[in-house]
Design a protein around this nucleic acid. Structure first.
Length: 418
RNA sequence: GUGCUGUUAGCUCAGCCUGGUAGAGCGCCUCUCUGUGGCAGAGGAUGCCACGGGUUCAAAUCCCGUACAGCACC
């Protein structure tokens, strides 16, 4: 049985319908992975996730390393047993924290919705500087990344080997190599340096993986390389070549859900378009950290197989819910440009307009929230700080995303994607 | 009944002494969030300054009275 099997290719796009066969079972693709950074998809149970159609979840190396510790989890019998989820688990390498923990330092630079390009550039420069010499993220070097743990103030160095070792102890089904995630916009030199480092780390990660995989908590664990290179197409191609030389079971495509790229998805589409043709067809492709529903649909059409993103779960905690609109999910784009089709509204349930709205959040949805409660009640729960509001909203948004993936798979099957 | 203190934004209060037509915190309203941030931030609305007189070029501010509240004493 191959790790990845393509069942059908869409005749009109690069989309693929397939199955990833992991050591803990199959994952139908295209797939969305709910995020459970600390070994928990916030507020929901494994049984609920499975019921809604989640087949694989994502957990985070860095956070579990810090607490409760990967060796403790290994003693518990691995992450699957520890958290009570016997389905496939995908682990991020900690590479993103190179970016996100630097981000925390410059939080005062965030939050302005209408930023000029120069402001975005200033933020990116600040982040890149911090990534090199910031107080929490003390430094990136050939060796690895030095973090100062916020929990106890101690410094820890995460090396490519350590990241693999931790993921081996966790026993995830798909592991990622440690990568450097540069903020965009960034200079060509910064991107070249970053890519050189990421490839250097990837080689060391693979080498360590080969040494320890037999004795790992999960010997069936697969390893993905991560394509970097910022917004420069030639660097992305170079990145793919470098990874192919090392040899991986699949690919993460990184650095496309942050900063200037998040603000302008066209960059993301351009980079994906320039990347996927270089990748082997029979290896799965994961787009790290993306995204909004229309971005997922578009990325699938460009040849992406799996996604993970905080949006459905985090936005739920921030009172924002996805609601289906009347238009067909895959009707042709009305305007030229991205080819995105936005077929939903993102409502903020705390808005005063819902104070006396006694209708369901989404009357086309069959989740627990929509079947049993109305908007006014959900708003009340949020306004009162009742935890149930967050939980119900999380359930609804995950249901929305997992339904979207089901619709996408069906659309590929019946040639009706876009 | 007498004395003292108080009455300013939805709430809790600052400003009064030394006059120049109002502030804070919370709440409320809106926005932002892409390999997690139950976080954080940005912006916004709201006042017959208890009421009635007076002094003054000008009163939340000084003076007099009234109402209401709290405390103390009868």
């Amino acid at each position: 049985m191959n790790f990845f099997e393509i069942q059908k290719k869409d005749p009109k796009s690069q989309a693929r319908l397939g199955v990833i066969n992991t050591a803990h079972g199959p994952v139908k693709t295209p797939a969305f992975l709910p995020i459970g950074t600390r070994g928990s998809v916030k507020t929901v149970t494994a049984e609920e996730l499975r019921f809604w159609g989640a087949e694989m979840i994502l957990a985070n190396t860095y956070h579990l390393w810090m607490r409760p510790g990967d060796t403790l989890i290994a003693r518990a019998g691995g992450l699957h047993k520890f958290i009570g989820w016997d389905g496939p688990i995908f682990t991020d390498s900690g590479g993103y924290q190179v970016y996100s923990l630097g981000e925390k330092i410059v939080s005062s630079l965030r939050g302005n919705p209408k930023q000029s390009n120069s402001e975005i550039a200033a933020r990116s420069t600040a982040r890149n500087d911090l990534q090199e010499k910031g107080p929490i993220l003390k430094g990136i070097s050939n060796v690895g990344v030095e973090f100062r743990n916020e929990l106890d103030g101690a410094t820890h160095v995460l090396t490519p080997e350590e990241s693999i070792q931790i993921q081996s102890n966790l026993g995830s089904d798909i592991a990622l190599v440690l990568d450097d995630v540069p903020a965009l916009p960034a200079s060509k030199k910064r991107l070249e340096d970053s890519l050189r480092l990421t490839l250097h780390w990837a080689k060391r990660a693979k080498s360590h993986y080969e040494k320890i995989i037999e004795a790992s908590v999960n010997p069936g664990q697969k390893l993905y390389g991560i394509v970097q290179g910022g917004d420069l197409e030639e660097l992305r191609a170079k990145s793919v070549q470098g990874l192919q030389k090392i040899g991986f079971d699949g690919y993460g495509i990184g650095g496309l859900a942050i900063g200037a790229v998040a603000d302008n998805p066209e960059i993301m589409y351009r980079v994906i378009k320039a990347t996927t043709p270089h990748l082997e067809e029979n290896k799965p492709r994961h787009l790290l950290g993306v995204g909004y529903p229309e971005q997922i649909v578009k990325a699938v059409s460009l040849g992406i197989d799996t996604f993970d993103c905080v949006i459905p779960t985090r936005n739920a905690r921030h009172a924002q819910l996805f609601v289906n609109s009347k238009t067909s999910p895959f009707s042709p784009p009305s305007e030229e440009g991205s080819g995105e089709v936005k077929n939903y509204d993102l409502i903020t349930i705390t808005n005063a307009q819902f104070k006396e709205d006694f209708t369901p959040v989404d009357n086309t949805c069959s989740c627990y929230l929509c079947l049993h409660h109305n908007r006014a009640y959900l708003r009340h729960l949020f306004m009162s700080g009742e935890p149930l509001g967050i939980r119900l909203a999380t359930m609804h948004n995950l249901r929305f995303y997992l339904d979207l993936m089901e619709k996408i798979r069906r659309a590929i099957e019946f040639d009706s994607l876009v």
